Computed example of a mutant assay.
Amino acid sequence: MWGSRRNRGAKRITCIACGEDVRRSEAREYDKHGDRWERRNKAFEHLCKTCYRDLCHQPRDELEALLVEIQTELGSCSQETFLAHYEKLVEDRYGPLEERER
């Protein structure tokens, strides 16, 4: 039904976070929409296991819309300006950002 997975680990991928080249079996799929189970018409990117563990795995339902809103409001801008605007919008909508200890 799902097809063979025997050759899945033989393929090599490049981690989108650190650029490391690893075997597919040593990586995790990344879906920017947060729904890796819906596979139709998708091309997945990959993260090495170390970078995947470092990700925040909290829901991101409104993230894409927030990023598009900022892009629409600011247009082309510096990374510093973009991040400052992002932080302000997040604090306005969801409260202050707090650094979590690992």
Rank of each mutant, 00 (worst) to 15 (best):
A43P: 04
P96G: 09
C51I: 00
S4V: 08
T50C: 04
R6F: 13
K42A: 02
R28K: 09
S25T: 01
C56W: 06
E69Y: 02
D31Q: 09
T81V: 14
K49Q: 05
D92Q: 15
A27I: 01
F44Q: 01
R100W: 12
A43M: 11
R24W: 10
E45R: 04
T14Y: 04
L74V: 07
G75N: 05
A65S: 15
L63K: 07
Y52C: 08
L74N: 00
G9Y: 03
I13S: 01
G34Y: 02
Y30L: 11
R100I: 14
Q71F: 07
E73M: 04
G75F: 01
K32Q: 12
R36S: 12
E98L: 06
S25L: 02
L55A: 05
L89A: 04
V90I: 11
W2N: 09
L55V: 05
K11H: 15
R53K: 12
G34S: 07
G75W: 03
G9F: 02
K42C: 02
G3A: 08
E64Q: 14
E80V: 11
D21Y: 10
E98M: 10
R12Y: 12
E98H: 06
C48R: 01
E91A: 05
L66M: 10
S25A: 13
W37L: 04
E62M: 07
R40I: 11
T72V: 15
Y52W: 14
K49W: 00
L67A: 08
E62Q: 15
E91M: 05
E64C: 05
I70C: 07
W2C: 08
L63H: 06
R28A: 15
C77L: 00
E98P: 00
E101W: 11
N7Q: 04
E64A: 11
E101L: 12
L97F: 00
D21V: 15
K49T: 08
E73I: 05
D61R: 10
Y30W: 14
R100M: 10
H85W: 07
R39A: 06
C48E: 00
A65T: 10
G9S: 08
R36P: 11
E64L: 08
D61L: 13
R23C: 13
S25Q: 09
Q58T: 09
R93W: 03
G34A: 07
L89E: 11
R24Q: 13
H33M: 06
S76T: 10
L89Q: 11
K32D: 13
I13L: 06
Q79R: 11
R53T: 08
W37T: 14
K42Q: 06
L74R: 06
L89P: 00
P96C: 05
S76D: 07
A27Y: 02
L74D: 00
W2R: 05
V22T: 03
E73K: 15
E64P: 03
G75E: 01
D54R: 13
Y30Q: 05
R60E: 10
R12G: 00
D92K: 14
S76R: 12
W2H: 03
R40M: 07
K88I: 12
R39W: 07
D54C: 14
E29K: 06
R60A: 15
R40Y: 08
E64W: 04
W37R: 13
N7V: 01
E80L: 12
G19L: 07
T14I: 15
Y94G: 03
K49L: 09
R39E: 10
T81N: 12
K88F: 14
N41L: 08
